[in-house]
Amino acid sequence: MTMIDILLRLHQNSYYFFAIILFIIGFHTMLSHNNLIKKVIGMNIMDTSIFLFFVAIGYVNGGRAPILEPGVPYTAYVNPLPSALILTGIVVAVSVTAYALSLIVKLYKHYGTIDAEEIMRIRGGDIQ
Protein backbone atom coordinates (compact mmCIF):
# COMPACT_ATOMS: atom_id res chain seq x y z
CA MET A 1 0.00 0.00 0.00
CA THR A 2 1.54 3.23 -1.03
CA MET A 3 1.32 6.54 0.70
CA ILE A 4 -1.19 7.71 -1.84
CA ASP A 5 -3.43 4.79 -1.05
CA ILE A 6 -3.32 5.55 2.61
CA LEU A 7 -4.11 9.18 2.04
CA LEU A 8 -6.89 8.24 -0.30
CA ARG A 9 -8.34 5.91 2.26
CA LEU A 10 -8.07 8.55 4.94
CA HIS A 11 -9.86 10.93 2.67
CA GLN A 12 -12.61 8.43 1.98
CA ASN A 13 -13.03 7.69 5.66
CA SER A 14 -12.26 11.17 6.89
CA TYR A 15 -15.39 11.31 9.09
CA TYR A 16 -14.42 8.19 10.94
CA PHE A 17 -10.82 9.33 11.15
CA PHE A 18 -11.74 12.63 12.67
CA ALA A 19 -14.26 10.99 14.93
CA ILE A 20 -11.48 8.86 16.37
CA ILE A 21 -9.19 11.89 16.73
CA LEU A 22 -11.97 13.73 18.50
CA PHE A 23 -12.50 10.73 20.74
CA ILE A 24 -8.85 10.73 21.72
CA ILE A 25 -8.91 14.46 22.37
CA GLY A 26 -11.96 14.04 24.58
CA PHE A 27 -10.41 11.18 26.41
CA HIS A 28 -7.19 13.06 26.93
CA THR A 29 -9.12 15.98 28.32
CA MET A 30 -10.87 13.67 30.74
CA LEU A 31 -7.64 12.07 31.76
CA SER A 32 -5.26 14.94 32.15
CA HIS A 33 -7.38 17.59 33.85
CA ASN A 34 -8.05 17.80 37.50
CA ASN A 35 -10.75 20.34 36.98
CA LEU A 36 -14.01 18.48 37.21
CA ILE A 37 -15.77 20.77 34.77
CA LYS A 38 -13.06 20.12 32.22
CA LYS A 39 -13.56 16.45 32.79
CA VAL A 40 -17.22 16.84 31.95
CA ILE A 41 -16.28 18.84 28.87
CA GLY A 42 -13.95 16.05 27.83
CA MET A 43 -16.77 13.60 28.32
CA ASN A 44 -18.92 15.71 26.03
CA ILE A 45 -16.23 15.84 23.39
CA MET A 46 -16.04 12.07 23.52
CA ASP A 47 -19.77 11.79 23.13
CA THR A 48 -19.68 14.20 20.23
CA SER A 49 -17.09 12.13 18.47
CA ILE A 50 -19.32 9.10 18.77
CA PHE A 51 -22.27 11.07 17.43
CA LEU A 52 -20.14 12.16 14.49
CA PHE A 53 -19.19 8.58 13.88
CA PHE A 54 -22.77 7.39 14.03
CA VAL A 55 -24.15 10.12 11.84
CA ALA A 56 -21.37 9.60 9.31
CA ILE A 57 -22.53 6.02 8.88
CA GLY A 58 -25.81 7.21 7.49
CA TYR A 59 -24.42 10.01 5.36
CA VAL A 60 -24.54 9.65 1.61
CA ASN A 61 -22.37 11.96 -0.43
CA GLY A 62 -24.62 14.47 -2.13
CA GLY A 63 -27.66 13.11 -0.40
CA ARG A 64 -30.48 15.24 0.90
CA ALA A 65 -33.01 15.05 3.67
CA PRO A 66 -35.40 12.18 3.06
CA ILE A 67 -38.58 14.16 2.64
CA LEU A 68 -40.94 13.24 -0.15
CA GLU A 69 -42.12 16.23 -2.08
CA PRO A 70 -44.57 15.88 -4.93
CA GLY A 71 -43.01 16.66 -8.24
CA VAL A 72 -39.39 16.41 -7.16
CA PRO A 73 -37.68 13.42 -8.76
CA TYR A 74 -35.79 10.82 -6.72
CA THR A 75 -32.29 11.75 -5.67
CA ALA A 76 -29.93 10.17 -3.21
CA TYR A 77 -31.28 10.42 0.32
CA VAL A 78 -29.33 10.45 3.53
CA ASN A 79 -30.22 7.59 5.86
CA PRO A 80 -32.31 9.33 8.52
CA LEU A 81 -32.16 6.58 11.10
CA PRO A 82 -28.70 7.33 12.54
CA SER A 83 -29.56 11.00 12.81
CA ALA A 84 -32.78 10.18 14.60
CA LEU A 85 -30.96 7.85 16.94
CA ILE A 86 -28.27 10.40 17.61
CA LEU A 87 -30.92 12.90 18.59
CA THR A 88 -31.75 10.51 21.40
CA GLY A 89 -28.06 10.12 22.09
CA ILE A 90 -27.74 13.86 22.43
CA VAL A 91 -30.63 13.96 24.86
CA VAL A 92 -28.87 11.35 26.92
CA ALA A 93 -25.60 13.24 26.77
CA VAL A 94 -27.32 16.43 27.80
CA SER A 95 -28.96 14.82 30.77
CA VAL A 96 -25.75 13.18 31.87
CA THR A 97 -23.95 16.50 31.53
CA ALA A 98 -26.60 18.34 33.46
CA TYR A 99 -26.53 15.75 36.17
CA ALA A 100 -22.76 15.79 36.35
CA LEU A 101 -22.76 19.56 36.56
CA SER A 102 -25.29 19.54 39.37
CA LEU A 103 -23.10 17.08 41.21
CA ILE A 104 -20.15 19.38 40.68
CA VAL A 105 -22.18 22.24 42.14
CA LYS A 106 -22.80 20.10 45.19
CA LEU A 107 -19.14 19.20 45.45
CA TYR A 108 -18.22 22.85 45.16
CA LYS A 109 -20.59 23.61 47.99
CA HIS A 110 -18.95 21.01 50.16
CA TYR A 111 -15.32 21.70 49.33
CA GLY A 112 -15.18 25.17 47.87
CA THR A 113 -13.22 23.92 44.88
CA ILE A 114 -13.74 21.90 41.76
CA ASP A 115 -10.19 20.70 41.53
CA ALA A 116 -9.91 17.00 42.10
CA GLU A 117 -6.50 17.32 43.69
CA GLU A 118 -7.72 19.96 46.10
CA ILE A 119 -10.69 17.82 46.99
CA MET A 120 -8.38 14.93 47.61
CA ARG A 121 -6.20 17.10 49.80
CA ILE A 122 -9.15 18.33 51.82
CA ARG A 123 -10.54 14.85 52.13
CA GLY A 124 -7.24 13.75 53.53
CA GLY A 125 -7.82 16.05 56.48
CA ASP A 126 -11.03 14.61 57.69
CA ILE A 127 -10.63 11.01 56.86
CA GLN A 128 -11.76 9.73 60.21
Binding site: N34, L36, L107, A116, M120, R123, G124, G125, I127
Partner: peptide
Protein backbone atom coordinates in the same frame (compact mmCIF):
# COMPACT_ATOMS: atom_id res chain seq x y z
CA UNK B 1 0.55 14.45 55.55
CA UNK B 2 -2.29 12.75 57.36
CA UNK B 3 -3.51 11.44 54.07
CA UNK B 4 -0.07 10.06 53.35
CA UNK B 5 -0.12 8.30 56.64
CA UNK B 6 -3.53 6.83 56.02
CA UNK B 7 -2.82 5.78 52.51
CA UNK B 8 -1.53 2.39 53.46
CA UNK B 9 -5.03 1.41 54.33
CA UNK B 10 -6.82 -0.55 51.70
CA UNK B 11 -9.62 0.88 49.66
CA UNK B 12 -9.21 4.51 50.54
CA UNK B 13 -11.00 6.08 47.72
CA UNK B 14 -11.05 9.51 46.22
CA UNK B 15 -12.39 11.31 43.30
CA UNK B 16 -8.99 11.73 41.75
Amino acid sequence: SLWDRMRGRPSDWNIK
